[in-house]
């Protein structure tokens, strides 16, 4: 890993509690431009909470998150502006069912980035073409399959021209035969140099495109390394146990 690339997200001592439940107990992480950070861990380990803290969908109870040089955990920061630069893809797709695919994709660019309708639609169609869904531009989300929905959700986020993409278990709600098409889009994104943070159970994806893999367990990062060491030479006993179950 080269270290001269710009640090995009720096997480220091991140903590999150839900009432009595202490989910994140101090997480440090550094994501550089072009990185693909894959976050793995058992369910309930806090990996999704970690991801959701990065764009403050969950408000951390401790620690700081610095995004592009700005401490976004500072209450005086307008998080809406920074979220525009952080695309997010959800397990349940969360497309807007009352709007067509095209409207789903142009809503943000026209209202938030003040692009003209024509400009936003042109960009949206280009993105749809890249994921093979240009013919679905005027369809409503309910007319799409799960895999198609998730590909639309990805390009909806991309339409905002984000600097980083956050993926929260993007293939976990899909039928098995649709997982491939979504992973393919994500791999393509990674190849194009998009900075990505991906929470997933897809170990094949992690191994293939991850630049750093972190293992979250009991609210802390127990191990972090490159894909080769992570899978072939795990150090932490909990990780060894985890890998033996999922591989």
């Amino acid at each position: 890993m080269t270290t001269d690339r710009e640090v995009l997200i720096e997480v220091q001592g991140l903590q999150k509690s839900f009432g009595e439940l202490h989910v994140l107990k101090g997480i440090d992480a550094e994501i550089r431009r072009g990185d693909v950070m894959v976050v793995v861990g058992a369910s309930g380990s806090g990996k999704s909470t970690f991801l959701r803290c990065l764009n403050l969908l969950e408000h951390p109870t401790g620690g700081t998150i610095t995004f592009e040089g700005v401490n976004i955990t500072d209450p005086s920061v307008n998080i809406n502006l920074h979220r525009q630069k952080m695309g997010m893809v959800f397990q349940q797709f969360n497309l807007f069912p009352h709007k067509t695919v095209l409207k789903n994709m142009t809503l943000g660019p026209t209202k938030l980035l003040h692009q003209s309708k024509a400009q936003a639609e042109k960009h949206a169609i280009e993105l749809l073409e890249r994921v093979g869904l240009a013919d679905k531009a005027n369809a409503y989300p309910n007319q799409l399959s799960g895999g198609q929905k998730q590909r639309v959700a990805i390009v909806r986020a991309l339409a905002m021209n984000p600097d980083v993409m956050l993926f929260d278990e993007p293939t976990s709600a899909l039928d098995p035969e649709m997982v491939g098409e979504v992973l393919e889009v994500m791999k393509q994104l990674a190849r194009e140099g998009m900075t990505m943070v991906v929470v997933t159970h897809e170990m094949g994806f992690a191994r293939e495109v991850g630049s750093q893999i972190v293992f979250v367990d009991e609210g802390v990062i127990k191990e972090r390394s490159n894909p080769k060491d992570f899978f072939e030479n795990p150090q932490n006993p909990r990780l060894k146990d985890f890998l033996s179950k999922v591989l």
């Binding site: 809406n80 525009q84 695309g87 349940q92 209202k111 938030l112």
Partner: peptide
């Protein structure tokens, strides 16, 4: 309305 709708909109940057 599903909470995910709210989160998706906020994650795009809408207030």
């Amino acid at each position: 309305i599903d909470k995910g709708q709210f989160e998706a909109s906020r994650s795009l940057g809408f207030n």
